[in-house]
Design a protein around this nucleic acid. Structure first.
Lengths: 209, 209
DNA sequence: CCAGGATTTGAATCGCCAGTCAACTTAGCC
DNA sequence: GGCTAAGTTGACTGGCGATTCAAATCCTGG
């Protein structure tokens, strides 16, 4: 039973991963069940054997990818000693295409798909709100942590700052993602940090080593 | 000839308007040619008589809607005497759902569709960049104007500020558009102005009359 | 080694919709 | 009043792609 369950779970997860990848490459609208099947090296019928419909699979895939990212992210956070380190890393991970090393699943492309869909699909809308809240929460946590360690001054509500900084990063990331000719990843990184420092109220040393 | 051309132009525009409206309501992915035809009270065949393909029509419709908005917007700007008035109005118009009066074509929902599509469609990518540049330019113009009138201090490059402020507004607008339970239109308006004032470097009077 | 359930396949079904087209209507023009 | 071209219709085609399903195949415990 345990092995059966694990078998199932593996296939399940394998399909979700494949789906996320296909969506990233082709876009939600151009994703066919057979594309996902091909990616798994499996027949199309099997996909529907594990998921009751294409729609539900897509929604699950979108949140699954975000969960994956979030897990890696929060594991990293826990290892860091200072809030400033955390913030730097958060921003680093938020800039599309800054880190080729990290298995680029291009989170941001998926986010845009989530937004479009959430606009009309209540199930996705609900998921989005959860994911977003979690993300803002992470930023707020960093700020609270920084206040405990004395790195950051007391000030506005950490939740509010999380919202503000999160939104700003969103907006900047879109520009970068669109490959805008005037807005490079490095520039986004710099701007994000500047905005964060001003909103949170800590001093930004001129530049790193 | 003049009348023929005008006839054509009317139908053309009528279709574009209808398309923009349908896309806003149903989303790009769920927009059928027949939906657009219905909206015009016309047969589906006619749509393809005026546009060579559905795809091209959709792209044109998306930019058309943005042009419309931009025209109204820049006409308004020209009438204003102070940069601060301009900025206030810009923000007011940028907050989704703040002004019910204004014929809600919900620009922002269309923007998200533009982004998704621009990610893979080069034609749309090019259009997007033009539209975006124009938008940033408008913000930069306001800043330059404010410096001429002495309302705003000299400081960073106006273009750079346009980019930063524009991106921040984008990010905030998404949150509001998603109907996030914790982020209201009014709150976005306030936050946008605060961020703008800090980035541009002018003093924000506590509240308006 | 076998029965029986879990997987997996791939062919068949079914509905949908973009795009085509031949026929019809209208409007202006001589 | 015909004549022509633009505008309009709506039935039709063709392909695509989600789902279904009956038939293989694979496992596992007994």
């Amino acid at each position: 039973m345990a092995s059966k369950t694990r078998q199932q779970k593996d296939r399940h997860q394998e399909i979700l991963e494949a789906a996320a990848r296909v969506i990233t490459e082709r876009g939600l609208a151009e994703t066919r069940i057979s594309d996902i099947a091909d990616r798994c090296g499996v027949s199309p019928g099997l996909i529907l054997y594990y998921f009751e419909s294409k729609d539900r699979l897509l929604v699950e895939a979108l949140t699954f990818a975000n969960d994956q990212f979030y897990l890696r992210f929060s594991r990293e956070m826990r290892r860091m000693k200072t809030a400033r380190e955390q913030l730097d890393r958060l921003i680093e991970l938020s800039v599309p295409g800054l880190l080729p090393e990290y298995e680029r699943l291009d989170e941001w492309a998926l986010w845009i798909e989530i937004w479009v869909r959430a606009l009309r699909d209540p199930m996705m809308a609900k998921e989005r709100e959860v994911l977003d809240r979690r993300w803002r929460q992470s930023i707020a946590d960093i700020i609270r942590f920084g206040r405990e360690t004395g790195e950051f001054p007391a000030g506005w509500d950490a939740e509010e700052l999380g919202l503000q900084i999160g939104a700003t990063i969103d907006g900047l990331a879109i520009q970068v993602l669109m490959n805008d000719t005037v807005f490079s990843p490095t520039r986004m990184q710099r701007v994000s940090l500047e905005v964060a420092s001003r909103l949170i109220g800590f001093e930004l040393e001129p530049a790193e080593a």
